[in-house]
Amino acid sequence: MDWVNAVIQGALLGGLYALFAAGLSLIFGVMRLVNIAHGDLIVMAAYLGLTTSVALGVHPLLALVLVIPMMAAIGYVLQRGILNHTLGDDLLPPLLVTFGLSVIIQNVLLEGYSADPQKMNGGALETASVSVGSLSLGLLPILTFVVAVGVIAGLQWMFYHTALGRSFRAVSDNQDIAQLMGLNKRHIFGLAMALALAVTAIGGIFLGIRTSFDPSIGGGRLIFGFEAVIIGGLGNLWGTLAGGVILGVAQTVGAKIDPGWQILAGHIVFLLILAVRPNGLFPRVSA
């Protein structure tokens, strides 16, 4: 029963990883940008959530009402002000600039909040659990997973059933021709980053309720998100959720074998999948 428990806990943890990964996947899909600062933006969202919930005396999940639009606005400005200028035929400039951004965000957070680990107060949600048979599952991981599924479903619907999603796909296919349709790609990229960071806000706040965080942990979150995207196959949002689940299960099962193995087991599974299926498990079938 312990093993079943580990697998289920891991699967639920995968929901959090999918929330980390969805934004990465979205911006890579739309503009071929690998955002090295993505993990630090997740941590920044957690701090914004902390400050908002403390200042207003509200539950961190309620703080999302403010943090989501804040992160979206930051995303749009960041894209139009900086990142758009790095995009071109060369993949290196965006990597370097987002790497620099990662360092800057960490330092700003360090200045503002110190290196001491912080945590958001989720109240009763943190300890509440539901019994399923002989298993006891935390309400917070379940809620995280349900939200992740909802977010992925929402993104998927937006991508394939709205004019905005159509514009995202068109720009992703061919930027020049998309411009001919009257789409300003700079604006579309700004909207994509806004959406990606809105999702990041959700991921950051669930992270900050679940565990303590400090300004240095962004890199690890980036890696988990990145691994989930690659395992699931680039450009496939449901695949990203599956990737997150696989990574989460690998980690909790690894930790069950030996607590020191948690992170390593995730990386090993990632590398194994990459070796067998270099395009991930569910790559987008190119039309």
């Binding site: 159509r166 796909r169 068109a170 992703s172 296919d173 061919n174 020049d176 021709i177 998309a178 411009q179 001919l180 349709m181 009257g182 789409l183 300003n184 790609k185 190119s286 039309a287």
Partner: peptide, 23 residues
């Protein structure tokens, strides 16, 4: 820019058709 020109009422049928494959 091309998007500004398009909104003024000029449209191009490009060489090689160049449809959006994901659409």
């Amino acid at each position: 820019r091309a998007d500004q020109v398009a909104s003024l009422g000029i449209a191009l049928v490009p060489e090689g058709r160049q449809l959006f494959p994901s659409l």
